[in-house]
Lab assay of single mutants.
Amino acid sequence: RHRTTFSPVQLEQLESAFGRNQYPDIWARESLARDTGLSEARIQVWFQNRRAKQRK
């Protein structure tokens, strides 16, 4: 699998969602996937990585 590159618009949507809830449930992730055009799995990994980045 190649590395996913996120567009500025996608990142804005993801960061906005992260600001509201750092642990989105499956319904929120699937909604974000539809809105961004990404797969739910990529959304899930993005949130995992974003939480790890915040802990540093």
Results as ranks from 00 to 15, higher is better:
His2Gln: 10
His2Ile: 14
His2Glu: 15
Arg3Tyr: 04
Arg3Glu: 15
Arg3Met: 08
Arg3Val: 10
Arg3Gly: 14
Thr5Arg: 04
Thr5Phe: 07
Thr5Ser: 09
Phe6Gln: 03
Phe6Tyr: 06
Phe6Glu: 10
Ser7Ile: 04
Pro8Gln: 11
Pro8Asp: 07
Pro8Ile: 04
Val9Lys: 14
Val9Pro: 08
Gln10Val: 13
Gln10Ile: 14
Gln10Ser: 04
Leu11Ser: 05
Glu12Tyr: 03
Glu12Thr: 08
Gln13Trp: 09
Gln13Asp: 05
Gln13Ile: 07
Leu14His: 00
Glu15Trp: 02
Ser16Thr: 10
Ser16Met: 13
Phe18His: 00
Phe18Thr: 02
Phe18Glu: 02
Gly19Pro: 02
Gly19Phe: 09
Gly19Ser: 14
Arg20Ser: 08
Gln22Val: 05
Gln22Met: 07
Gln22Asp: 05
Tyr23Cys: 07
Tyr23Lys: 08
Pro24Leu: 08
Ile26His: 14
Ile26Tyr: 12
Ala28Leu: 11
Ala28Lys: 10
Ala28Gln: 09
Ala28Ser: 10
Ala28Glu: 11
Arg29Lys: 05
Arg29Val: 12
Arg29Tyr: 02
Arg29Met: 12
Glu30Phe: 08
Ser31Arg: 13
Ser31Phe: 07
Leu32Gly: 00
Leu32Gln: 00
Ala33Thr: 08
Ala33Leu: 01
Arg34Thr: 08
Arg34Asp: 07
Arg34Met: 09
Asp35Thr: 14
Thr36Pro: 01
Thr36Lys: 01
Thr36Tyr: 02
Gly37Val: 01
Gly37Leu: 03
Gly37Asn: 04
Gly37Ser: 05
Leu38Tyr: 01
Leu38Pro: 01
Ala41Leu: 09
Arg42Thr: 15
Arg42Val: 15
Arg42Asp: 15
Ile43Trp: 01
Ile43Gly: 01
Gln44Ser: 14
Gln44Phe: 11
Gln44Val: 10
Val45Asn: 11
Trp46Pro: 02
Trp46Arg: 01
Trp46Met: 00
Trp46Lys: 00
Trp46Leu: 01
Phe47Ile: 03
Gln48Asn: 07
Asn49Leu: 07
Arg50His: 09
Arg50Trp: 00
Arg50Lys: 11
Gln54Arg: 05
Gln54Pro: 05
Lys56Phe: 05
Lys56Asn: 14
Lys56Trp: 05
